[in-house]
Write a protein that binds this DNA or RNA. Structure first.
Lengths: 342, 342
DNA sequence: GCCGTTTGCGCAAACGATTGATCAGGCGTT
DNA sequence: AACGCCTGATCAATCGTTTGCGCAAACGGC
C-alpha cells in the first residue's frame, strides 16, 4: 500500500498531492472553516489513501495537548464482573473517538507510580477509576488532588465526579424474590462494612424485609467482603446461627460462589436446603452449580455513563454525581432459588 | 506540591534552577556523556522535585519516535485464562520501563481500525497478540504486513516472532495422570481442528496413550473448541459412544467447565463416574464443582518471554520463535479425578 | 475599469523534549 | 604571551501536527 517502508507523514501527502502541508491537515481534519476547493480536497484524500497516511499520534498530541486516550482502572482486570463494565467503557470511548487504556489498580497505591505515569506525563486525558474495596476516599482524593479529570465508579470521592448503580434497589429485588418464594428467615452475605456499595445493598435488603413485615435480626447480616472466601466465611457464620436462615442474599457474584461452596461443604443442597441469590450478574453465574439466580445490574450502561461523565469533565464541565437508573436492576431466575422446604 | 495549577515543563525547572533547558534535560535523563557540575545537577534535581516535574509524554515521544507503550491484545480481556499472562506481560513491561496497553482483539478483524489506530498512528512501539481461535495465520500475517514489531502467542504466523508453551507435554501429563489412576478408555475434548494449540495438545494426549500401549480410538477425540459450550458438546458426543470413556481430558479450563456441566446434566458424578482433567489452570478451576484437576502451564513466564521477544524485535533483532520450557507443565491435583469405578 | 469582497492556498510559529554543535573561560604548556 | 585543551553550560535544529494570519487571484457591482 505505502510506497516506502517508512510511515507516511503529512509532508509526504502534501508532496504527492502538490499542495502545502497545512492544506492537507485541514482537508484531513475536516476543518469546516477551511476554504479549499473540492478538487484539491479530492486530490489530497486520494494521495493520503495512496500512501496510507495516518496522523502521527505524538505530533498531534503535542500540538493539541490532548491524547484521546482514556484510562480505565479496575481492581482486577480479569474479574468477570468487569466484563460488561469494560465493554461499556470501551464502546463509549470508541464512539467518542478515544482509545481505552486498561490498567489494574494494584499498582495504584497513593503516590504510586501509575497515576504519575498516566496523568503526570500526560499519557491520558482522564481516568475512570473503580477504587479497590476498602480504599479510603479522602486519602484517594488527596492523592489525586485537582490535577486530573477523574470519574470514580461505585464509590464517590471528594473533588471528582462519580457514577453509581442502584445498589439498594438491586438488593431489594433480590430479597423480594426470596420473600415471594415464601422465605421468612433470610441471611445477608454482605461486603465490607466500610464499603459504600455494601452499605447501600444492605439497606435495600432491610427495606424489603421491613416492607414485608419480617424480622430484622442483626445476626442475619454479615460484613465479610466481596471475595469468594468472604462468601464462605459469611455463610459459615450464618449457618452457625441457632436458627438457620433458609435463604441467603449474596452482595456480589464472587461472594455467592463462596456461599455455594460453603453450603455444599456443610452438606446443604442448593436450592432445596438453602436458596441463594446474588446481586450483580456475570457470565460466571451461569456456570456455577447450581447456576445462580442473580439481579442483573446495568453495568454496561454504567461504563458508558462513566465515560460520558468523564468527557464532560474534560470539556470543562462541572463535577457531577450520577446514578444509572435505566435499565432497572432485574432478577435473572436460574436454579439456585426455590421455595423453602415445607 | 507544584507551584501553579499548570503542569510543570522542562523550561519551568530550568528557570527555577537558573540553568538552560538542555542542562535540565541532560541531568534528568542521566546522560553520562553530559559534562555538568555536581552542584548544578543537585540544583536541577531539587528544582524538578519542587515543581513536581514529569516529562511530557507527547514531546518525548515525538522527538524520540518511541512511546514506551506496548499493547497486549487478547481475545477476551476478562477471561480468567489471561490473568497470569497479563501479569507476566505487565511485569516485564514495567521492568523495561514500558506501559502496557491492554486491548481486546474483537475489534481486530483484518483491516479493522484497532491495528491502524495503534500502529499506524504510532501509539505503541509493538504488539503482543494472541489471535482469536480460528484466525487464519496467513490472512493475519498479510493484514499486519511488515509494518510493526509483533509477537504472537500460542500461534506462530509468518513474518513475526512467536512464543508458545509446551502444549503437547501438558496434555501428555494430563493423560498420564489418568492412566496412572487406572483409566483405560480416555476421551479428549479438544479445541478446533484448525487450531495449532489444539493439534499439539491432541498429539501429546495420543503420545501418552501410545506409550502406555492403549487403544487410540479416533471416536474418543473431539474437536469442538475451547469454549464452555464446546466442552459440553464434546462431552455429549463422547458419552453417546457405545463404550463410554471413564475419563476426559479437556484441552482448556473453559471447555472443562462445560464437560462438568454436561456430565452432571447426564446424571454422571464427577469423579466417581467420570474423571476430568484440564490443560491450563486458572483461579476459576478451584471454584468449579468439583474443583478441577489441572495441568498448570507457565503462562506468567509466557507473558514475560513474549515481552522480551518483542523488545528484541523493537531493538532491531531478528524474528525468532521461542517456547517457554521453564517451569515445566505440572499437574495440580484437585477433586475431579479419581480411580475408575471398579 | 476601479475597489471591496470572497475564494484558495501557503508561511511560519507554536507544542515540549532531545542532542549535536558551539562558546566562554580557566588552566597548563611551550 | 600565544596556543591548545578541558570543563561547564547554552544555542538552535528537529520530531509531525495544527492554526492564525497573510497574500494573491478571481469575482461582482458600480
Amino acid at each position: 500500500m505505502g510506497d516506502t517502508g517508512a510511515v507516511a507523514k503529512l509532508s509526504d501527502v502534501a508532496a504527492r498531492a502538490g499542495v502545502s502541508v497545512s492544506a492537507v491537515s485541514r482537508v484531513l481534519s475536516g476543518d469546516p472553516s477551511a476554504r479549499l476547493s473540492e478538487a484539491t480536497r479530492e486530490r489530497v484524500r486520494k494521495a493520503a489513501g495512496e500512501v496510507g497516511y495516518h496522523p502521527n499520534f505524538a505530533g498531534r498530541a503535542l500540538k493539541l495537548a490532548r491524547t484521546d486516550v482514556l484510562a480505565l482502572i479496575v481492581p482486577d482486570v480479569t474479574n468477570s464482573l468487569f466484563a460488561e463494565l469494560t465493554r461499556g467503557v470501551e464502546d463509549e470511548a470508541v464512539a467518542r473517538g478515544c482509545v481505552m487504556l486498561l490498567a489494574r489498580s494494584e499498582d495504584m497505591q497513593p503516590g504510586g507510580s501509575l497515576f504519575d505515569r498516566l496523568l503526570g506525563e500526560g499519557r491520558v486525558d482522564g481516568i475512570v477509576l473503580q477504587p479497590r474495596d476498602g480504599t479510603d476516599p479522602d486519602e484517594l482524593a488527596q492523592s489525586v488532588g485537582e490535577r486530573a479529570p477523574l470519574v470514580t465508579i461505585h464509590q464517590p470521592i471528594p473533588g471528582a465526579s462519580s457514577v453509581v448503580v442502584p445498589d439498594a434497589l438491586a438488593a431489594r429485588r433480590a430479597t423480594e424474590h426470596l420473600i415471594a418464594l415464601g422465605h421468612r428467615r433470610i441471611g445477608f452475605a454482605g461486603g465490607l462494612a466500610g464499603s459504600p456499595t455494601a452499605r447501600r445493598r444492605a439497606a435495600g435488603h432491610l427495606d424489603a424485609l421491613e416492607e414485608a413485615g419480617l424480622e430484622q435480626d442483626p445476626h442475619l447480616v454479615t460484613w465479610r467482603g466481596y471475595r469468594e472466601q468472604d462468601g464462605r466465611a459469611s455463610t459459615a457464620e450464618l449457618l452457625a446461627l441457632p436458627e438457620r436462615p433458609t435463604a441467603i442474599v449474596a452482595a456480589n457474584v464472587n461472594a455467592a460462589v463462596g456461599v455455594l461452596a460453603q453450603a455444599r461443604a456443610q452438606g446443604l443442597a442448593v436450592p432445596e436446603d438453602l436458596s441463594v441469590v446474588a446481586v450483580h450478574d456475570a457470565w460466571t453465574a451461569g456456570h456455577t452449580w447450581p447456576p445462580l439466580t442473580c439481579v442483573r445490574m446495568p453495568l454496561y450502561e454504567l461504563g458508558r455513563t462513566a465515560v460520558a461523565a468523564l468527557a464532560h469533565v474534560i470539556d470543562g464541565g462541572a463535577i457531577e454525581h450520577r446514578s444509572v437508573e435505566d435499565p432497572e436492576p432485574v432478577l435473572i431466575r436460574r436454579e439456585s432459588t426455590a421455595e423453602p422446604r415445607g
